[in-house]
Design a protein around this nucleic acid. Sequence first.
DNA 1: TTGAATATTGCAAACGTTTGCATTACATTA
DNA 2: TAATGTAATGCAAACGTTTGCAATATTCAA
Lengths: 351, 351
Amino acid sequence: MSKRTEKTIVDIAEELKLSVSTVSRALNDNPNISARTKDKVKKMARKLGYRPNALAAGLRNNKSKTIGLIVPRISMFFPATISTIIQNKLQEYGYNLIICQSNDSYDQEVALVNTLYSARVDGLVVSTTLYTTDFSHFDVFKDNNIPLIFFDRVPKDYNVKVIKGDDYVGGYTATTHLIERGCKDIVHISGPLTCNLYVERVSGYKHALQAHKLPFKKTRVFYQELTRDNAWQVCEKIFAQTPYPDGIFASNDTTAITIMEYCRKINVRVPEDLKIVGYSNDPRTEIVTPPVTSVDQYPAMMGERVVAALMELITNQASATAPRYSQEIIPIQLIARESTAGTVKTSGKKK
Amino acid sequence: MSKRTEKTIVDIAEELKLSVSTVSRALNDNPNISARTKDKVKKMARKLGYRPNALAAGLRNNKSKTIGLIVPRISMFFPATISTIIQNKLQEYGYNLIICQSNDSYDQEVALVNTLYSARVDGLVVSTTLYTTDFSHFDVFKDNNIPLIFFDRVPKDYNVKVIKGDDYVGGYTATTHLIERGCKDIVHISGPLTCNLYVERVSGYKHALQAHKLPFKKTRVFYQELTRDNAWQVCEKIFAQTPYPDGIFASNDTTAITIMEYCRKINVRVPEDLKIVGYSNDPRTEIVTPPVTSVDQYPAMMGERVVAALMELITNQASATAPRYSQEIIPIQLIARESTAGTVKTSGKKK
DNA sequence: TTGAATATTGCAAACGTTTGCATTACATTA
DNA sequence: TAATGTAATGCAAACGTTTGCAATATTCAA
C-alpha cells in the first residue's frame, strides 16, 4: 500500500506525453513555457501528489536552499531569540535552517561544521564556543567561498563577516551606571577570556573605573563559565571576607539573578547594600524581585542583520570583488531597574 | 583561488588509479576492500581535502540522515529543552536535525511539513500548533511510511506514534493539591480547547473538584492563549468582582507568574490569600518570589523517549508488521513551592 | 603446476533534477 | 504560399554517490 508512491517529474512527463525538461521548466515557471502547458503540468503534479525532491535539485544545482546555524545552546535566552528571528526571516526567503548546538564543546563544533559542509548548506552562521580560539575548521567554508557569518561570539584575527554587540560600550556603560549610583567597590564577574566578548566587557569595566578615578583591582574580577552553580560558588568566595563589594557587574543575567538569591540568603539587601547589573536583558530580569538592571543587546536587530548580511553574501557570491569580511556592531542599551535603584551613601554598609 | 576546489571520489580514484566504486567502498569501510587500499584511499582523501557530498549520497540512497522537528516556538522552555535533548541524542546516532517553528500558525505548519518532506528527512517529529485539528498534511509521511512521531501536543483521532505527558493526571494533581491546601474556589486558566492536552487538564481539574465535592463552575474556567498579555487581562476580569478565588491553577508558568505579579499590584497576598499552581516547571518558577508550585513534565525523559521511538521506527521501517502507532505516556510530578504553602482558613479572605 | 575457491576490484546503471543547445511548431509578413 | 522570426518543446548530459553483478587477482590444496 505504501512504497511505490514517490512520483517524479518523469511520471508527470509520461502521463502528459511531454518531456521531463518541459515539466521541470513548467514547474519552475520558466518564461518560455506556454501558460497552457504550465497549467496542465501543475494540475497533473497535484493530481499525482508529486513532491519535488530537494536532494536531487540540490545535487544538480549545487545548492541546498539550507542554512546552517551553530550556537552554544538554544536553551539560553540570547541565542534562542536570535535563532527564532533567523529562522522566521529565512523562511521568508525560502531557506531552511539547520539549528545545531555545540554545547560549548570545541570538538562538537568542529564535527558540526563538517557535517554541515557535507550537507552542502548554502551558508553558515555561527556563534562560537567559549573556548574556540583556533578557527581553521571554518576554512572549508572560506576556501569554497560559501557565505560564513559570525555573530555575538566572534573570532579574533580571522577574516570573516562579523556581527557583534558593542561589548566594550556595554561593559563601560554598566560599570559607569554603578559608579553613578554611588558604588565604589565594584566586582566584575566575567566569562572566560578565551571568548573575545568578555575581553571587551572587562576592558569597558576597567576603563570606566579609571575614567572615574576608581582603582582597577585584579582581585575584584572573576573569570568563569557563567552558570548558576558557578555564580553561587563565586558568591561564597566574595562574601567570605569583608569588605563586601557595593556593586557587582555580572556578564550575564543568570549570574546576576543567582547573586541576588545568595544575597537574600545572607541578608545583604539589594539595592540598598549592593547594586547589581546583569547582561542580555533576559526576560527573567523583570520577574525577579527586585527586577535586575541589565544590558539589552537588541537580539532581534542582530538576528535581522545576520539574515540581511547572509542574503547579501549569497546573492553576491559570484562577484569576486565583494568584500569577504567586515564588522558590524549592534548597539546596546542599559535598562535600569530596581537592583540599582537609589544611591549608596558614602559610608553605609552592612545591615 | 577558490571555486575549483570541491574534490570528489572521482578525483581520489583518478589520483590512485582505482575505480570510483572501490573508493566509495573504501571510504565506507566495506568489508571486501583490502586494508591496504582502504588506507591509501583515506590518506588521499585527507590529502585532497575531500568532503563527502551528502546530497548525492542522499539522492542515491533515498535517505538524508536528517530528521525534521516542528515545534510551536523554540523560545519556550518546554520545547526548547526537548529540542536540545533530541538534537544532542540524534547527533550520537549520526543524524542531523532541522528544527523549525510553526509560531503556532497552522499555515506555517503545513508549509513546513511540505518543505521537510521535500528535503526528504528520514523522520519527522512534531508538537503541533494550538489550532491544528486537521492533520491531513501529515499524510505524506504516513503514506510513504516515513517515521512520524508526535509529542506533547499530539493529534486526536489520527493514528500515529504519540508520546505525551500525563495531562489528565497533571490537571487532577494540581487541583487536588490546591484543594488539600484548603482552597474552595479554584479558577482554572486553560489554553484553547482545540489543543487536546488542555482538554485533558481541564478534565482532570473538573474531576478533582467533583471527587472532593466541590462544584465545577464553567465561569471559573478561562480559555485563552497562555501569553503574558492574556494572563494580565484575565486577571483584570477575575479580580474585577468579588469574591476573589482562593486558588488558581494555570496551565502554564508564564500565566502563573504573571498572575502573581498582578496580585502583588493589587495587594492580594500569595500564598496567604491566594494559592497558585503553574504547569511545566519552567526554571523561572524558582527565581520568582514566592517560588511557584508547578507540574514537572520530565522534558528530558520525553526527549529521550522520542528519539528512542524514532530510531526504532527507522530501523524497523522495512517490516510492514511493526505497529505504525501507539501511545506512550510520560509521568508528571507536582513540585510544591511557596505559592501554595500554608493552609487557607475556612473563612479568612481579603487583606 | 594446476584448478578451484576466495578475496579484491571494476563496470555501469541508477537516484531525480536542471539546463545548454537543437529541434519543432506556430505566427507573421511579403 | 514561401520565407522568416519567434515561441515552445525535446534531447541528453551532468551533479556525486552507491551497489549488483561481472571480472580479475590472489591464495591454497593437491
